[in-house]
Design a protein around this nucleic acid. Structure first.
Length: 116
DNA sequence: AGCATGACGAACA
DNA sequence: GTGTTCGCCATGC
């Protein structure tokens, strides 16, 4: 039903979206954690690239995905640069100067929470 | 084909 | 803790 050509990257995107959608409210994750969960931890950039394409999808809480430092590096890619921080604070995550406070507390690791 | 860039991460000085 | 460098892989010129 589906050709096996050029499906890899698409499937990778879908996997990223699936994991991101599993992130509960008030929790955050990192590109590297997702990449690690998908088995491509060395390609954390591709996770960010997948998020760049998330504009095609509607149900992707991309604001819950930040870099390893808990820094909102991707906020500038949102409709409004303030949307990402605002959404996080709305969920109870404190953000100051584009950085999540107590990031490790709010951190959500798919490899742990989803038990692989 | 090569070179530069990017919502990253890790290693190293 | 900060700054620099490299690796990674897809995309654009």
């Amino acid at each position: 039903m589906i050709s096996n050509l050029s499906v890899k990257s698409k499937d990778f995107f879908e996997q990223v979206y699936s994991v991101v959608k599993e992130i509960p409210s008030g929790r955050v994750s990192s590109y590297g954690a997702i990449a690690n969960y998908l088995g491509t931890k060395q390609s954390s950039r591709m996770v960010g690239w997948a998020m760049n394409a998330c504009h095609n999808r509607s149900d992707i809480p991309a604001h819950r995905v930040v870099n390893r430092n808990g820094l909102l590096t991707g906020k500038m890619h949102f409709p409004s640069p303030n949307a990402m921080q605002h959404s996080l604070e709305k969920e109870g995550v404190k953000v100051v100067d584009d950085q999540i406070i107590d990031f490790k507390v709010h951190f959500w690791d798919p490899e742990i929470e989803l038990k692989i």
